[in-house]
Design a protein around this nucleic acid. Sequence first.
RNA 1: GCCCUCGUAGCUCAGGGGAUAGAGCAACCGCCUCCUAAGCGGUAGGUCGCAGGUUCGAAUCCUGCCGAGGGCGCCA
Length: 556
Amino acid sequence: MTPSALADLVRSAAAEVLAARGLDTGALPEAVIVERPRNPEHGDYATNVALQVAKKVGLAPRELAEALANALAGTDGLDSAEVAGPGFVNLRLATDAQGELVRQVLVQGAAYGCGDEFGGLAVNLEFVSANPTGPIHLGGTRWAAVGDALGRILTVRGAVVTREYYFNDAGAQIDRFVASLVAAARGAEPPEDGYGGAYISELASEVVRAEPGVLELPDGQRDEVFRRTGIELMFEQIKRSLHDFGTDFDVFFHEDSLHASGAVDEVLEQLKRSGRLYHADGAWWMRSTEFGDDKDRVVIKSDGAPAYIAGDIAYLADKRSRGFDLCIYMLGADHHGYIGRLKATAAALGDDPDVVEVLIGQMVNLVSEGKPVRMSKRAGTVVTLEDLVDAVGVDAARYELARYSVDSAVDVDLDLLRKNTAENPVFYVQYAHARLASLQRNAAELGLPPVAGTDGSQIDLGLLSHPREGDLVRTIGEFPKVVARAAELREPHRIARYLEELASAYHKFYDAARVLPQGDEEATPTTFARLALCEAARQTVANGLALLGVSAPDRM
RNA sequence: GCCCUCGUAGCUCAGGGGAUAGAGCAACCGCCUCCUAAGCGGUAGGUCGCAGGUUCGAAUCCUGCCGAGGGCGCCA
């Protein structure tokens, strides 16, 4: 029995109890909470529903719990239902009903954990979007790992996700980037406010190699060549490192294209016509305060040039015109002021502000010798995506960055990276998968029929009666709920934390129970029941790691 | 000054209305003639920043304060 089936069972029993007493069944919560108590004495599962509704319907919590327990007692698949504490009902499943879950995982395979509560919602997920003026640094790397995982998680819960990267390839920032390239190519010092890292001179040489004679062109033409070629080379480098990191995008959107196509002018005209803009102090302002922003925003500067936000407005309009129901932006904490502005933009465009959802993640800090290291392109202390991957590999890097809530700032310890340490929890999880894969290999070598790919109907899963077996089954059973919750809250780290729990439950089981026959022993029904359980565990670990974009190795 | 996030074991962090607050790492003591010891068991380690409030019940929700980080441009 799955946890959700159990929850349904509890809810209908509770409804019957209330109805039998002529009480309002509407007092019941939509989703009854059935959770796994941390104390095993409190049963396999426990529900607090009696505590939640007793007051509403005017009953003592324990009295209601008592009635609920009586109604549940004797239900098919339940071994016991007992009242405890202030009004909890503790439940124990019959072993065969519990083992049924293993069969479901075998049948569902890679689809175990999927759901459809998003029902085809078209989601635009924009993340990383680092400026194309340099390589992806650690902050961007965090979003690459978390955003990619979120995309996978939303997808398996029924959303149709488009992953998008917004290149800010217009404006003064790019001008400085180009000027820095030109200076480097000419062997000059980088300009004030320019970029001076080693990658700049390498890029500059590449431009010269690709376009010989560029330095002899008149300044205007020369800069144009550096702009076009330099940006293109930088793009390629960024795309390549993201791809190598396992993060691919459906759309790389160029801010420049919004200006070139006239989309910016068009949307600004539209806003003027609809009275969303006003003219003051020589500039055009958006009335964003009317839509909850802190202050009105300049969208056309007094020199006539569009402000940065103008591109954002046109970009959102573009996303909506492409049919997205929900536009998610993943931004760093230094952009939290964007929330109000982007939502106001949606409102100004005549949209529901809720089509815009901004996820703010805290910063990634560098630590060395216990002290924070300030990242600086000039000082050469920028750590890039490649640096991280070189130090620990893609799997460890992705896992490490995805296992923390984005609400908490992450400290990356440079010394630890240099040590190439094996202290990362990713190994704990991957090792569980490798052990499980190894079990299936060994079973095959013993000539046992494979469990994977069958529906397990020939196997007596009621034999899984050891406490460690029950723990493992129930932990596996939590997976769909965890994925759903991660999708709902946009919190991929829940997957990683769950996997650590699952790996732990497996390692404990493995330690306590022998799976394969030893020596001259024959395979028994228990052998097959355990092999099925192990295959269900392996499948679940593999599905979870896939959501994080981390490999599930068969050997380590 | 205003806004956002955080403050939980020595360290890094989960848990975000439920029962005796958890994991990894670090420390200490045990466990491989046997399916992968990158594992398992045990010991030790806590005023969940502080003070009020809401509730049958608060680490969790609300208010204030303290501390840390990040924002508050006609920059992008």
